[in-house]
């Protein structure tokens, strides 16, 4: 590879940041293998495993039958026996097909066995709406996973995070779900060439601010940042926090921010009811009630399956305008 003449940081789209994270994880450890539906010959339906079969061979990059429960069991059994599997679950919606292996085996084996089993398994999967893929290929189900003790869950919002969180997940000695967003695959961003790890359980303050806190995940980080830029014109100085890891959650960074700004809004693409926003709002009122100048707000999808038609899907999805309106409502109430 030729070096660019300037020292400008290298940019990669999110999709290629995933590929690089996978490649460097496979290169770093012989015990790492990648298995999933169409990840080898086809390079995955999203294209992020392209080239890995040629580079690492069929022993380590493996096409599986369309058998999500079997694939997840492969991850459980192989990791319990000393390997470090990366299991690709093509769409997050397919988790219904394998939830027993996730919920009752992968998450609990270590605890049930009194700490005698270690399961260093990574599950990569694709969430998110906005592509007209309808109700079974568009969901954000991270709250399901966060409710299960024993699992870790990360949600990369940028190419930098996609690579760094993936590498951390593979190095971690626990089951970690890496939940990508299909609407971010083409997004460019700075990605260092060398391997790097982003610590799990540590939030990222994407935009510092002084009088309002927005906690946003995945693609909603960008909608929140856009809203924050526009709200600045109205004198609302928003701090945007991306938890990066949603289980375990970096409550400390969130609480410290709210103690400073006195107002908070949580934004996620998943349905509002029973979503992460409910948990984060509860923690804020438990830990920072006396600091609040207004009730904590939540923006999420309405309680409905994801509709197919672009006309309705647009109405379904949270966006910068909805975030702005909610921030203004909260600020107005306080004023």
């Amino acid at each position: 590879m030729t070096q660019a003449p300037t020292s400008e940081p290298r940019k990669l789209p999110y999709i290629l940041a995933i590929t690089e994270g996978l490649r460097q994880s496979l290169a770093a450890d012989e015990n790492v293998f990648l298995a999933g539906e169409d990840v080898a010959g086809a390079g995955s339906v999203f294209g992020y495993t392209r080239g890995l079969l040629a580079e690492f061979g069929a022993k380590r990059v493996i096409d599986t039958p369309i058998s999500e429960e079997g694939i997840m069991g492969l991850g459980v059994g192989a990791s319990a026996c000393g390997l470090r599997p990366i299991i690709d679950l093509m769409f997050m919606d397919f988790i219904g097909e394998c939830m027993d292996e996730v919920l009752n085996q992968m998450a609990k084996m270590r605890y049930m066995f009194g700490g005698k089993a270690t399961l260093p398994v990574t599950v990569t999967t694709m969430s998110g709406a906005g592509m007209n893929l309808a109700a079974q290929h568009s969901q954000s189900l991270e709250a399901w996973l966060c409710h299960v003790p024993g699992l870790k869950v990360v949600m990369p919002s940028t190419p930098y995070d996609a690579k760094g969180l993936l590498i951390s997940a593979v190095r971690d000695n626990n089951p970690v779900f890496v939940v990508f967003h299909k609407g971010l695959l083409g997004m460019p961003g700075e990605v260092p060439e060398e391997p790097y790890a982003i610590p799990l359980g540590k939030a990222n303050i994407v935009r510092p601010g002084s009088n309002f806190t927005i906690i946003a995940t995945s693609k909603m980080v960008h909608e929140a940042t856009k809203a924050a830029a526009e709200l600045a014109e109205d004198g609302i100085d928003v701090e945007v926090i991306d938890p990066r890891t949603v289980q375990p959650l970096d409550s400390e960074t969130i609480i410290n921010s709210v103690k400073k700004t006195h107002r908070a809004l949580i934004v996620h693409e998943a349905v509002r009811f029973g979503g992460l926003g409910a948990e984060i709002a509860a923690q804020i009122q438990e830990e920072a009630f006396d600091f609040l100048d207004a009730p904590v707000g939540r923006v999420g999808a309405p309680f409905s399956p994801v509709p197919f038609t672009p006309a309705l899907e647009k109405a379904y999805l949270p966006n910068a305008d909805k975030i702005k309106a909610e921030v203004k409502r909260i600020v107005g109430r306080a004023g």
Binding site: K59, G70, G73, G77, A78, C81, D100, Q105
Partner: peptide
């Protein structure tokens, strides 16, 4: 039937190693 997928994964690890 919680076990067969795990045993299959263990068998995979045996073959891999």
């Amino acid at each position: 039937a919680g076990g067969p997928p795990i045993a299959m994964g263990a068998a995979f690890a045996n073959k891999y190693k």
